[in-house]
Amino acid sequence: MDVRFEGVSHVYGAGTPFARPALSSVTVSIAAGSVVALLGRSGSGKTTFAQLAAGLERPTAGRVIVGGAESSAERRLPPDVRRRIGAVLQHPEHQLFEETVGRDVGFALRRRGVPPDEVERRARAALFSVGLDPEAYFARSPFRLSGGEKRRAAIAGVLVYEPELVVFDEPTAGLDPEARERLIEHLEAVFRRRRPTVLYVTHRIDEAIRLADRVLLFDAGRLAADVTPAELLRRFEAYRRFGLRPSPFIRALFAVGRRAPDVWDDPPRTPAALADWLAARLGGGRKGARP
């Protein structure tokens, strides 16, 4: 599903004393099937951008075109388009409410009138796709899971209806590193297999570089840069003023770049790819092997 922003501005609480401008005159087109990372400081407008794209907020000015339908101050996205959009908002575990994980994951399908046996089949598949064994988790209470499991169950509850556009708002926030790594691996696989359009809000630059084929960088409500991950890495210093800081992975890349500037031609996007690149370059052989 493609998304187009045409001169979009958004003010929260417009017309009240609590009015807070969040996004101003953003124009951008996103092709169907692309994975776009939204970066920027907290409060830079990236969350608002994602919510506008998903039709969860409507622009105060300008219009958002999603899958050919329009969302504007006057018009809401029609229901048939909204049903094809998924939203994993901050702390998605707060959407769990059914008595069992299986029922909660199948909830969106039941709302769409899918027959019960198909609901169960697809709910099991969705649990599997986020790395939760359906046999072990289907009948459990969602409130008894660990933080990381809750998070993945909630995400399964969105992926289950195979949305053509999914927005993720900091899906790994608050997870410990192992749970985070596991979640990203599963998301990466889902993105590759189903090819939804993805808007992925994060403040972890490594996740953006690894998952996305395009990066939108926001600053004070404006779209400050629209680049590929490789360009982001190459011009990293220029983007520090938008709050970006080098992660250890990026520091390693810079260290490699000082020795071998050709790393910037097509920079590796994951730690494993970086190790592969170094092994190939330094003649260690055994490419691709991981412990």
Partner: peptide, 26 residues
Amino acid sequence: EGRLALPGLLPPFGVRLAQDLTARGI
């Protein structure tokens, strides 16, 4: 050096890179 494992935690990036490189013959 793999003498210690941390349940739930990943080693720091530098440690993982060293492990990855060693596994690739460097």
